[in-house]
């Protein structure tokens, strides 16, 4: 059930005590990400793909474009489907089988960032109204879970979309893939009353709560998700927003 595994009380106290002093286990600043890298197009069998590393966390995202029937209530919209797999090879706490609540939450948080920012102009993905549209499948593959899968997954998803090569299909008539925004998710963890970005796995395992804020280029918010059993005060949320906005710009710059 717990995707972060077990942590010893000694380490828990150590991390909490460091947080109180504004410090972290790996000597980072509270507002500092681990090293972030984005590799575009590692998978040739996908229309678009990207591998994102944040520290030792690794996520692969692949995009497939396929013909589909539109949803009956949205006959003039293409279809966007985001799926996330927490692979058993990525962590001793991940098990094979249907996506659990953590995988589902991860997929839905990434989905909302892309959908609500209207990053993809879905109206352009209609082939024949009500009958035939393009479906954009984004599959997120967590390869190595060392914390902050949400930010890595959201970044991999948008990087994979930026990498999309046009399908060789006569139904495809657009000059380019209709990607119009770059939403970026930044997760802020709260440990012992202190807010910090990009929690490592051991930090996630002791955090009280997290808040993910997905922002677009102008700094406005398109999606949020609080997680964990702890709480945030109003002031903390405002502080988290400032952090998320500043850090999203840094991550977006990695997309090239």
């Amino acid at each position: 059930m717990n995707m972060y595994g077990i942590v010893s009380s000694v380490k828990r106290d150590y991390i909490a005590d460091l947080a109180r002093q504004g410090k972290r286990v790996d000597t980072r600043m509270l507002d500092q990400f681990r090293e972030v890298s984005v590799e575009s197009g590692p998978i040739k069998s996908a229309q678009g793909s990207a591998r994102v590393k944040i520290g030792k966390t690794q996520v692969l995202a692949g995009v497939k474009l396929e013909h589909a029937e539109p949803f009956s209530d949205r006959p003039d919209n293409g279809v966007l489907i985001v799926n996330a797999e927490l692979l058993p090879l990525a962590s001793p706490t991940f098990e094979p089988g249907r996506p659990d609540e953590n995988a589902i939450e991860l997929a839905r948080v990434v989905d909302r960032g892309i959908r609500e920012s209207e990053a993809i102009d879905l109206e352009k993905l209609v082939i024949k109204s009500g009958e035939d549209v393009w479906a954009v499948f984004i599959d997120i593959y967590a390869l190595d879970h060392d914390g902050n899968l949400i930010d890595a997954s959201a970044l991999a998803a948008i990087a994979a979309l930026l990498n999309v090569k046009l399908p060789e299909d006569e139904a495809w008539t657009l000059p380019e893939f209709p990607l119009q925004k770059k939403p970026v998710a930044v997760t802020v963890a709260k440990i012992n009353g202190k807010l910090m970005v990009d929690p490592r796995l051991d930090e996630e395992s002791v955090m009280d709560a997290r808040i993910t804020m997905t922002t677009i280029e102008d700094g406005s918010i398109c999606a949020m998700q609080k997680g964990g059993i702890g709480y945030f005060s109003r002031e903390e949320l405002e502080q988290a927003y400032e952090l998320a906005r500043a850090k999203a710009a840094e991550l977006r710059a990695k997309l090239g």
Binding site: R115, S220, I221, C222, M224, Q225, K226, G230, Y231, F232
Partner: peptide, 24 residues
Amino acid sequence: AMVPRKKLITLLQMDGHFTGEEFK
């Protein structure tokens, strides 16, 4: 969702569009 007496937020989700000011 919140714990009203202490004004602590225990659930927060959002989709759509807010500027920072609108969020406040």
